[in-house]
Design a protein around this nucleic acid. Structure first.
Length: 563
RNA sequence: GCAGGCGUGAUCUAGUUGGUUAGGAUUAGGGCCUUCCAAGCCCUCUGCCCGGGUUCAAAUCCCGGCGCCUGCACCA
């Protein structure tokens, strides 16, 4: 386990070198908000691009980009307005705060309103568990940041900063469904900011009030149990902690076969997640997948596995892979009145016979006037097993429909498929947490000659700077030559860094500290034969290569993932 | 939100029975030197978290705020 001093030194380095800075620092800072400095921004971008490589290029999912701020309706439908909050009660004598629903004995206490809960607390005589003092009436604390959209007054609407990027992908379902030419499964992704008004953010990048997330929503037919591409990951070994207890090490395929992971679709994204995290530089020995306990699940989830990484803070969730079933689409259908269903097409259009009740509106109209429509609907809802004069009730009133006002008939219909609400699997990645974990898992200190030497062993593909370019000494044209190479690399799209100050060893050390995988040095021989040395961060070995080949060599190693 | 600990340049730190221009090291920038892994020499920049109070005088004592760490709670 990490000592905190080591973490402190990593964070000091991250601040000093421009990875992470406290936001609003000159005004004293604010908990839960950080700036990414130049290296941090680049690192974040590289991690996100790696994620895109998996989800957009790899899976063929479609990326969308939607507003951070949403009108209230969205969260009424999503459930965040009601559920993404806690009723807090505070002790009047010792000041301790509690979730009020955890203090009462009633079943389903979390579904009670503040008033109901307050009544229940009084009835049970609940006192402060800490000191026995009196508790205040529970007050809701919603974790969403609220604001007003539009000018105060008539045009004003309540709005909230989104606590997750997911909702837009549900709201855009119809567009996406058409974009994918009405074929399931398909996936949509969004990379962006989420906002949560955490009561007490701690632990640096681990709990932020404004954070970066990358989410995918994969829509699929719940009857399609199989998952395309499942074989790609079925041999991946993973450490699993199912909610039935215990810890298991087995392949994805085996876990599905034994029913430990309930769906192939869900398990597929466990496998993809593992591959992505390892590519990003997460240590496999510090990675596990843990299934949520039933009472731990978010309000929208049916099953959920978290990817957790071991950090100096303990095991921390970095990815949540949830089966949201049809919760979101159903809710948005209910609240918006729109049809968010997909069609399960039959191989060919079928002609089926159905027995239907067919009201005779020509008779019903004169009989029931304004109520005719309601009566007809009530009649149809009785189903085809009716005969004779029928009494139906609508809106509390009874109507007698004579036999002559309807008929029951077999009719032929063409049916091309059946409608259903797709289910959704959601892998949700916390980019900031992943970025921090990558730093911790790759930060090393070596004591060399009594001096602490720091190396950040970032995978080459996510390292913010790919190559340092130095003249051995800044004279006799070596500096000029190095500068030329530096510019050449940048023109090739390789983020490089030129440095001629101090000794060559110091410059290597500076690059090692920020995770630069390669260093190019121009020496006297370069002036003769146009070759340079290329040094590898991990083993400090050098090879001599022609200037012409530098860019290609570096590019190859980044894409090939040598490091 | 509560409790405890902490807060001196970018980093580490000296300095608190209140008492001159807050000292050092590292880093960073400039220069000299230097033929590949934090060498050396010279010069230079950056600081008492913020606000209020006590006092002739506050980095030092008191109060509040902010931030960091730990625990509880919360969140995922």
């Amino acid at each position: 386990m990490w000592r905190n001093e080591l973490r402190d030194r990593l964070l000091a380095m991250a601040k000093r070198r421009g990875f992470i800075w406290p936001a609003f620092d000159i005004y004293g800072g604010l908990r839960g908000f950080y700036d990414y400095g130049p290296l941090g921004s680049e690192l974040k971008r590289n991690i996100i691009n790696l994620w895109r490589k998996y989800y957009v290029l790899g899976e063929g999912f479609a990326e969308i980009d939607s507003p951070n701020l949403s009108p209230e309706d969205v969260f009424r439908a999503s459930g965040h307005l009601d559920k993404f909050k806690d009723l807090m009660t505070v002790c009047t004598s010792c000041g301790a705060a509690f979730r009020a629903d955890k203090l009462v004995k009633t079943e389903n206490a979390d579904s009670l309103s503040a008033d109901e809960l307050w009544e229940e607390m009084k009835r049970e005589g609940v006192k402060c568990p800490e000191c026995g003092g009196e508790l205040t009436k529970p007050e809701p604390f919603n974790l969403m940041f609220g604001t007003h959209i539009g000018p105060k007054g008539k045009g004003e609407r309540a709005g909230y900063l989104r606590p997750e990027t997911a909702q837009a992908m549900f709201m855009d379902f119809q567009y996406l469904y058409r974009y994918f030419r009405e074929k399931l499964p398909f996936g949509a992704v969004q990379i962006g900011k989420g906002f949560r008004n955490e009561i007490s953010p701690r632990q640096g990048l681990i709990r932020l009030r404004e954070f970066n997330m990358a989410e995918a929503e994969i829509f699929f037919d719940p009857e399609e149990k199989d998952w395309p591409g499942f074989e790609k990951v079925s041999d991946e070994n993973v450490r699993l902690i199912p909610n039935t207890g215990g810890e298991l090490l087995m392949s994805i395929g085996e876990a599905v076969q034994k029913g430990i992971i309930r769906s192939r679709a869900l398990s597929y994204f466990l496998g993809i997640t593992k591959k992505f995290l390892l590519d990003a530089g997460i240590d496999e020995g510090k990675l596990r997948f843990r299934e949520h306990l039933r009472d731990e699940m978010a309000h929208y989830a049916d099953d959920c596995w978290d990817a957790e990484v071991l950090l100096s803070y303990g095991w921390v969730e970095v990815v949540g892979i949830a089966d949201r079933t049809d919760y979101d689409l159903s809710r948005h259908m209910e609240y918006s009145g729109e049809n968010l269903k997909a069609l399960r097409k039959y191989p060919e259009t079928r002609e089926i016979e159905v027995t239907e009740v067919i009201p005779d509106y020509g008779k019903l109209g004169p009989l029931f006037k304004k109520d005719a429509k309601k009566v007809a609907e009530a009649l149809i809802s009785l189903g085809p097993d009716i005969a004779g004069d029928i009494t139906v009730s609508a809106d509390g009133k009874e109507y007698t429909v004579p036999e002559s006002a309807y008929r029951v008939e077999k009719v032929k219909k063409k049916v091309s498929g059946e409608e259903f609400i797709p289910h959704v699997i959601e892998p949700s990645y916390g980019i900031d947490r992943i970025l921090y974990a990558v730093l911790e898992h790759n930060y090393k200190e070596v004591i060399d000659d009594g001096e602490t030497y720091r190396i950040l062993s970032l995978p080459a593909r996510i390292a913010p700077i790919k190559a340092g370019v130095f003249p051995l000494m800044a004279k006799e044209g070596m500096d000029k030559k190095a500068m030329e190479i530096y510019e050449m690399l940048r023109n090739e799209g390789i983020n490089a860094f030129y440095d001629h100050s101090g000794s060559i060893g110091r410059r290597y050390a500076r690059m090692d500290e920020i995770g630069t995988p390669f260093c190019i040095t121009v020496d006297y021989q370069t002036l003769e034969d146009d070759t340079v040395t290329m040094r590898n961060r991990e083993d400090k070995r050098q090879e001599r290569i022609p200037v012409k080949e530098i860019a290609k060599k570096i590019a190859d190693r980044i894409d090939g993932g040598i490091l």
